[in-house]
Design a protein around this nucleic acid. Structure first.
Length: 501
RNA sequence: GGCGCUAUCGUCUAGUCUGGUCUAGGACGCUAGGUUCUCAUCCUAGUAACACGGGUUCGAAUCCCGUUGGCGCUACCA
């Protein structure tokens, strides 16, 4: 007769959620999104967001990744209420350490309790024996699981060393209600007695999680869908230990374009690399939220504050979401536009400093004003504004508007020069330049004047308005660049056959 | 293979619970047009989807069953 465990939410506990990454790699974009949803949920419910480092795998865990994870979360503004402190090595708090490798005594206590109560046992079977058994079961077409050989210590094999500690897995149906998926049922009889520790001092993931979630009074476990099949196993252990089962919410995974697991081959998976590439944390946050969730209404560009107001965990999508670099980039440009010039200034001046480029505040502010709409990433700024610092080299033929001839270009440049020369340094604003230019423009074609002038001032085929450029580089530099262009034209004409015919 | 999750434009999604107002809405992308000296911005328009097959019903994207596809887990990793 199968008995079945049903999860009852029980009395309302204060909301405490956690992010539990393993420091075995950089902060993955998927982990960052999990952090976001946890954070949002905590904020909405007046709860606490806890960061816990799951470093029970001694071989793969590294301190530098612990630091990176924290740095990434800080950059996103996803601050945690409890847990490690950046640049501080000891992580002690109300619940002891938030680093699993420093909580061995806690796990040991519960491990011993299970052992004493015969809810767990030492297994003496060797890896080789287990593997042979596994293969045999697969050959028979069965789902491979441990046969329970050592469960009742039928044959203590006293000449051997214990290999691992196994949990007595009850053969029951396990049912729980997932906040995003609804009711989920697993059959415990398919699991077999699982290994929960290598020995008393070396617990494994599934066990450590159960202990920590209880000890740290976690109310809601919001994590990736890859943990969905761990959940029934963890629930079984909670029952054995007489722990309360938290409420679960399993998030859909982030996928690559071919719907496979998001890997480096397809897009950058490390969060901090997006900072390097010139993405704003607010854009990343916005983008990650939109992967699996959508606010009511049509407005998709949001900051953290707005997301906190609109977020609804019950509205989370059930199936995986493909990562779209294009949308991320678009969102980034939108967030850049929403920044005030002052905010952009702080970001960009830091950027310039890194590259040892000196610029005065007033000058930078002017550049920001005209470049803001042209930026997709912060990193675009330096290459796009280099023309204001130094005129790039260009070919004379670039000065030609449509199919005009070089002599016509020269005439046009001469007109521009004349208009500019009449102005004083003081009245050299974009608006005034435009006015002066318009007075020499032939009503049929502004391009005839504007194009060659723009190329003369920028050296590029795509750039901001020549009047804008002129106002920033100043009257003297403007005249200098126009004269240079005229020079280029005449040199080309002298040294080559007339190409106009 | 077994178990679990899942399925609306190329992509992210609204709509599904509480069938009709859905000739399926928005966003990204793409295309065209407008503004314009160029690029970008901005504006307008277009493009394009209910996986398939049954059933229930006067009526199904929406409810039920099946099929197929995708993903996850199946470790002495997390």
């Amino acid at each position: 007769m199968l008995k079945s465990y049903t999860m009852n939410p029980g009395p309302k506990k204060p909301v405490r959620v956690r992010l539990a990454p393993s420091p075995t790699g950089s902060l993955h974009i998927g982990t960052a999104r999990t952090a976001l949803f946890n954070w949002l949920f905590a904020r909405q419910n007046n709860g606490k967001f806890i960061l816990r480092l799951e470093d029970t795998d001694k071989e793969r865990s590294e301190k530098k990744f612990e630091k990176e994870i924290q740095e990434g979360l800080k950059w996103l503004g996803l601050t945690w209420d409890e847990g490690p402190i950046l640049n501080q090595d000891s992580y002690l708090g109300e619940f002891g350490s938030y680093r699993q490798s420093e909580r061995i005594e806690v796990y040991k206590k519960y491990l011993q309790k299970l052992l004493d109560e015969k809810k767990a046992y030492y297994c003496y079977c060797t890896k080789e024996e287990l593997e042979a058994e596994r293969q045999a079961m697969i050959a028979e077409g069965l789902s491979p699981k441990y046969n329970g050989h050592c469960r009742n210590q039928i044959n203590p094999k006293s000449d051997r060393e214990p290999q691992v500690i196994r949990f007595v897995t009850s053969e029951t149906k396990i049912e729980f209600t997932d906040l995003v998926r609804g009711k989920v049922i697993f059959d415990g009889s398919l699991f077999g007695d699982m290994v929960i520790a290598k020995n008393l001092e070396t617990p494994l993931y599934n066990f450590a999680v159960v202990v920590d979630d209880e000890e740290m009074k976690i109310s809601h476990v919001i994590r990736g869908e890859d943990h969905l099949s761990n959940t029934p196993k963890q629930i079984l252990m909670q029952k054995a230990l007489d722990f309360e089962t938290p409420i679960y919410a399993h998030l859909p995974l982030i996928l690559a374009a071919d719907r496979s697991k998001l890997s480096k081959r397809y897009a950058e998976t490390s969060l901090l690399d997006y900072r390097e590439k010139g993405y704003l944390s607010s854009a990343l946050l916005n983008f990650m939220a939109l992967l699996g969730w959508h606010p009511e209404g049509d407005e998709e560009v949001m900051n953290l504050q707005e997301m906190t107001e609109k977020f609804d965990i019950k509205k989370i999508q059930k199936s995986g979401a493909v990562f779209s670099p294009e949308k991320l980039t678009w969102l980034n440009s939108q967030h850049i536009k929403n920044l005030s010039n002052q905010e952009l200034f702080s970001i960009l001046s830091a950027e310039l400093k890194k590259k040892n480029i000196l610029a005065e505040k007033e000058f930078l502010l002017k550049l920001i004003e005209i470049e803001k709409n042209r930026l997709k990433t912060i990193n675009d700024f330096i290459p796009q504004t280099s023309l204001f610092f130094e005129l790039p080299d260009y070919e004379a033929k670039l000065l030609k508007w449509k199919d005009e001839t070089l002599p016509e270009v020269e005439t046009s440049l001469l007109k521009s020069l004349g208009a500019v020369e009449k102005m004083s340094e003081k009245e050299f604003t974009a608006e005034n330049i435009r006015e002066a230019l318009d007075s020499v423009v032939d009503s049929t074609s502004r391009g005839q004047i504007y194009w060659p002038l723009r190329v003369a001032l920028s050296g590029q085929k795509a750039s901001p308005d020549p009047a804008e450029i002129g106002s920033i580089i100043g009257k003297k530099e403007t005249e200098k660049r126009i004269k240079l262009a005229i020079e280029k034209v005449t040199n080309t004409r002298e040294n080559r056959y007339d190409q106009s015919s």
